[in-house]
Design a protein around this nucleic acid. Structure first.
Lengths: 206, 206
DNA sequence: AATTCTTGTTGGCGTGATGGCAATCGACTG
DNA sequence: CAGTCGATTGCCATCACGCCAACAAGAATT
């Protein structure tokens, strides 16, 4: 029956092949979950032999980690060239840019930042940790609090926690539609300001 | 080469056996991740044949979902018998009880609420959704806002988002030690109050 | 153009994990 | 003590994964 396209074996540049496989993996892992997506699926979709995936990525897990790493990255453009005005305004701009990014890459971002599921995985933990640190740096820079020293770790911890709320609120916006984009903007700007201006001083003296 | 304990096959009440397997699964899934823990591991640890797991839970996935469901549930004791004082005080009490629960079940809770990993899984999504709704009900009840009608969905959405911050902050406390328990109490009480008293009114009129 | 060379690519094998099924054996009944 | 119910198990078919040697596409060399 169907047309099997006996496409001849074609040789590609390693980088090209690698990113093609990565692209397919991103899509499939985004749609299904780790265990429901098999390397055979990815190989078939990419039009290559299953073994080639092992050749390029070692194991299924490593491919998975590569995909997660790619998806979790926070664009640096978000906190670049901020005007030297108030922290409030800078944060507002920062947040706007970020919402732009999310809105543009809706599908990809949604599958990257899924619900909080459980499953201890040291390597995933590591990736998320690094990503969180970068995001925290961006926020503190925007808030002009990049060089507080007293209670620095508490401040960073609170900003990281706020990052979780940001992700959850974004899901509310994109998936459920319960909050509008401007709702998010208001809510997140005000909460982060409240956090650094009001809560942080109250907690700092410990 | 040690003592193999050739314990004879022992017949148990279905419920007892079921919960025993569930208990072992909870522990192992808490330590490892879904794919690193095999049903053989669970069966061996539970002193039972691997096939019995299929008999009780159908598939590995269903067992996993059962475990997740159990771990994510918010105890109802948290919002029971609250004194009829201010919203602030009621929320404070509520939060204290919650932190008690988390502190007591530290390990279990930590493995249940892992980092936010990606991977669309409709069934996990469903479980988390239900769990979030319950938690939101508890908070709104404590805040004496259970029967607001205008902008109800926005309010709920914001409280759900705040729940994510709560989980993240709890991780900061338990895992990294960057925040103390009293820090959490201050931070979370103030942020949720700020959210419902200040942000919500600003957003409600849309 | 023909040959060699490099290395991207594949088929196939071994191992281990999963789920289903029918046979077994433990405990209770009369 | 025989009979029955169903909890429990051994076994098998299937499939996913990682590894290895062999194959061949395209460049380099003669």
């Amino acid at each position: 029956m169907g047309a099997h396209r006996e496409v001849r074996r074609r040789r590609m540049e390693p980088d090209a092949r690698r990113s093609e496989i990565l692209s397919v993996a991103r899509r499939l892992f985004g749609a299904g979950s780790y265990s429901t997506v098999s390397t055979s699926d990815i190989a078939a979709e990419a039009g290559v032999a299953r073994a080639l995936i092992n050749h390029y990525f070692g194991s299924k897990r490593q491919l998975y980690l590569e995909v997660v790493r790619q998806m979790v990255v926070v664009p640096e453009s978000v906190s670049q060239r901020l005007p030297p005005t108030t922290a409030e305004e800078r944060l507002s701009i920062c947040l706007d840019r970020w919402l732009d990014v999310v809105e543009r890459n809706r599908e990809m971002w949604l599958s990257a930042i899924g619900p909080e599921v459980f499953g201890h995985d040291p390597e995933i933990d590591q990736i998320m940790l690094e990503s969180d640190e970068i995001a925290t740096d961006r926020v503190l820079e925007a808030a002009m609090l990049a060089d507080v020293t007293e209670g620095r770790e508490k401040l960073r911890a609170m900003v990281r926690a706020h990052g979780s709320m940001l992700r959850a609120a974004s899901r509310e916006w994109l998936v459920r539609g319960t909050l509008s984009r401007s709702d998010l903007h208001v809510m997140l700007t005000r909460t982060v300001l409240h956090l650094v201006n009001s809560v942080f001083p109250a907690v700092r003296e410990d």
